[in-house]
Amino acid sequence: MTDIHPTAIVEDGAVIGEGVRIGPYSTVGPNVKLADGVILESHVVVTGHTSVGAKTHIFPFASIGHKPQDLKFAGEVSFLEIGANNQIREHVTMSPGTEGGGGYTRVGDNCLFMMSSHVGHDCQVGNHAILANNATLAGHVELDDFVILGGLSAVRQWSRVGTGAIVGGMTGVEFDVIPYGSVIGDRARLAGLNLVGLKRKGLPREQIHALRAAYRALFESTEGTLRSRAEAVAAEGADQPLVKTVTDFILEKEDRRFCTPRSED
């Protein structure tokens, strides 16, 4: 049974699934869709053209779907899509997209957004992401699956963070982070691989060893450019799935800059 507190405001047009619980003083806008089993605790605001997936749990004072923090936004219709089984904690903010970014902000499934984390306009967040307290994504950021952002970290607009990567607390990410990479520092520098995360996933040891060898070839060598080294590693490690994930990420787009162990690369 749906349970809507008497002090909550659910505007006409909102689509409310089965088993949804809307707590005291929460507000749901007319273009919002809440799937089955969604929970809004007290004082939650969900507005705009926002859809929230099944069993996602949103905690007090979260602000979801208000217009983007972008001076170029001119009131165009844009969307925020949030997947299933997410935990969105207190004071989290998530913005819809803009015309300049394709009009959609998307969040996957099974993510944890800790207190006061922020997802900016036009971001694309994968599954199983974790944003610790006060971690922030500027506009147009891409986070792949299983990314972890430490507390008070920030990712600059248009940056990409590859699958399985981890960003240390209070780290500012200016450039792309390779899959399974570990970055730290005032301005993020690559400090190695997220070996703890790889082992926790139970990946075969030989795949991890191949990835470590690829990392050395990519970032400990000074021959050629990073792109040329990635092309060579890709040719040698085409049968290694972890290596292929990293080299595909580097080679996917040209004219990208990456967090490396050395500021000059």
Rank of each mutant, 00 (worst) to 15 (best):
N86R: 00
R89S: 05
T105D: 05
N127M: 13
L112E: 00
D70F: 08
A132N: 14
T105Y: 00
G126C: 13
V125N: 03
D122V: 11
E81Q: 11
Q69E: 10
V119Q: 07
S116C: 15
N85R: 07
F79S: 06
A138C: 13
N110H: 10
P68L: 08
V147W: 00
I82P: 02
S78P: 00
L71G: 09
E90S: 06
H128D: 10
S78Y: 00
S95V: 13
H128A: 09
H91N: 13
G102Q: 06
Q69V: 09
M94N: 03
A138T: 14
M114P: 06
K72D: 13
T98K: 03
A138H: 09
A129L: 14
E99M: 15
I82T: 03
E99G: 13
S95L: 15
Q124S: 10
H121D: 01
N86W: 04
G108M: 02
P68K: 02
D70P: 05
H118K: 10
L80H: 05
G83M: 02
Q124C: 04
I88Q: 01
G101A: 06
V141I: 11
A135S: 15
N133E: 07
S95E: 15
H91E: 12
H118Q: 14
H140K: 07
Q124K: 12
S116P: 11
Q124I: 11
S117D: 03
L71N: 12
G75A: 07
N133Q: 12
L71C: 12
N134H: 13
L80P: 00
G108W: 01
G126Y: 08
S116T: 15
F73E: 03
